[in-house]
Amino acid sequence: MALQYTQKVLEHFKNPQNVGELDQADAIATEGSPACGDMITFSLKIDPETHVIEDIRFKSYGCASNIATASIATVLSKGRTIEQIKSMNPKQIVDELGGLPAIKMHCAILAVNGLKAAIHEWEIKQGLVEQEKVELSPKTIRHQLEKVINPQTGAPIVNTMLKDVQVDDGKVYLELTLAGTDDAFATNIMNEITEALGEMKCVKQVMIRFMESKKSVITEFNQDC
């Protein structure tokens, strides 16, 4: 399968901007995991008075578009305030790169989530926000699943594929529909969902079922509450 990357993606892949780690970073955050083959770490210097991101670096473990999206994310962040970044949308990154193949859309989400996670960590350290206690509910689960992308369409699964969410004492039941998506992607989507929910506190078990196929998976967790 030949990958249709834009010139801008290839440029940032070949000559990524702001690579590395800041020595005395005010905030550091990592999104993704080695098993998924997708990981970005951002380190930031933030002015406590103006909330401006004075400097930023990234490290990446991932494909060409992972590197390119992280690179453009640093370029877009430098000199902006954390408030501006908090309202940043993955689409801005995609547009800035002149588009991404649908199968690579998750890279833009990963980059934006990485930036927001670093900022959130900084806000907690500064005492600007409190570490909120996320309750396990269908609503918070749907929110957490906003970062899972259908690789065929490039759209989040919560809008199109996720049909039912139930929670019972740390056990999460999800029912999905393929809605025209190739069955071959089901395993990837299930893995991504499991990974996303595994990051949430209080999750003991995740069960995912596709309405159309025999594919279903149960994963056990023992997350603290």
Binding site: C36, F185, N188
Partner: peptide, 18 residues
Amino acid sequence: IRGIAVSSGSACSSKTLE
């Protein structure tokens, strides 16, 4: 980019991301 054509077992290079 360096003129060398290879292939990869990586999930990112596969159609199904596995």
